[in-house]
Design a protein around this nucleic acid. Structure first.
Length: 318
DNA sequence: CATGCGTGGAT
DNA sequence: TATCCAAGCAT
């Protein structure tokens, strides 16, 4: 959960998750939909599917015990060098380094490293440094302390060097270059896109579609949606009908505009136009489509806009 | 090796 | 409001 996600954000999700799945075995035997439902709102849903899959592998191949061997741990889905090092150093006191957002910043400043930390030279230097500072004992404590130093004191914009316990060892501090290090690499430009979602209604229920493994929000349910032609402000009935057929194999009658919402995801700013429609006939094969009454949507893992639309429908029925 | 993946907090 | 950023990983 903590991969690319701040601790304060994770805490309530972790508490709910660990209450429902207190051990590896309970997680392994859960339905994926329930795992994703508990992850809903946290983002990077591949993490949840990887964690679920890793739990199943651990039960099947490792007698339900998390593997203490670094290479074996790393071979689990979603466990990379950082996560394996963090788990094994903190939980088992193995002498393994970690490198993540906080310690990248701390180490880059200590060394006054002016390259790009994510590139090959930077990774080599920073991982080596992380390894070189490990103590003989309490490795996990040191790793956590370094992350804490980065998140509380050696912060991105204006680090609080006056309270830093190692400022006298810091080359960036000596050079007055804290604001320049680490160098940040340029982010991709935000792109505005327009999409449409279709609420297909049939006898008090609405149609949901599960995103495939190849799509964003893989595994989550959503109202059928599609990218509309760029620059277009309105969505034609014909476009709704054609895309509904494409996505669901269903013939529909487009009815009326429901609402328009904004949502940012990765490098896209999406304007999502939501439309109501009535089911007429037909349906694609497969388990990626389902009908639910609006008040039954609580059971399903939805993405943010899907959840907003779902709540809107419940309120309309009141 | 660059890119895609999500969302919400902080400034 | 806009931008940056976050206990990374897989492809």
């Amino acid at each position: 959960m903590l991969q690319q996600t701040q601790v304060v954000t994770v805490i309530p999700f972790f508490q709910r998750f660990i209450s429902r799945f207190p051990d590896i075995t309970s997680l392994a035997s859960a339905e994926e939909d329930e795992v994703l439902r508990l992850w809903e709102g946290l983002g990077y849903y591949r993490r949840a599917r990887n964690l679920h899959s890793a739990a199943q592998q651990i039960v099947r191949n490792h007698n339900a015990q998390f593997p203490e061997d670094f290479s074996v741990a790393r071979s689990l889905p979603g466990i990379g060098r950082y996560t394996a090092g963090a788990i094994l150093s903190i939980a088992c006191n193995h002498k393994l380094p970690i490198l993540e957002a906080n310690t990248v910043r701390v180490f880059s400043r200590l060394l006054a490293f002016r390259g790009v930390p994510s590139e090959k030279d930077g990774q080599q230097l920073l991982w080596s440094f992380a390894e070189s500072v490990l103590p003989r004992k309490h490795v996990g404590d040191l790793n956590q302390a370094l992350m804490e130093l980065g998140s509380e004191i050696c912060v991105p914009r204006v680090p609080n060097c006056a309270t830093c316990p190692v400022h006298m060892l810091c080359a960036a501090h000596r050079q007055g270059a804290q604001a320049l290090i680490p160098t940040k690499k340029q982010r991709p430009a935000i792109e505005n896109v327009t999409e449409a979602a279709i609420v297909i209604q049939r006898g008090g229920r609405v149609l949901l579609r599960r995103h495939s493994d190849q799509e964003r929000w893989a595994g989550l349910w959503d109202f059928p949606r599609f990218a509309t032609s760029p620059g277009q402000t309105a969505v034609s009935h014909q476009e709704l009908i054609d895309n509904a057929l494409q996505l669901t194999g269903m013939k529909i009658e487009a009815s009326q505009h429901l609402t328009t919402m904004q949502h940012s995801v990765t490098r896209f700013r999406i304007t999502l136009q939501c439309h109501l429609a009535r089911y007429v006939s037909g349906r694609k094969q497969g388990d990626h489509l389902c009908w639910r009454a609006p008040d039954e949507l609580e059971q399903l893992p939805l993405n943010v806009t899907g959840r907003k639309i779902g709540r809107l429908l419940v309120n309309l029925n009141k």
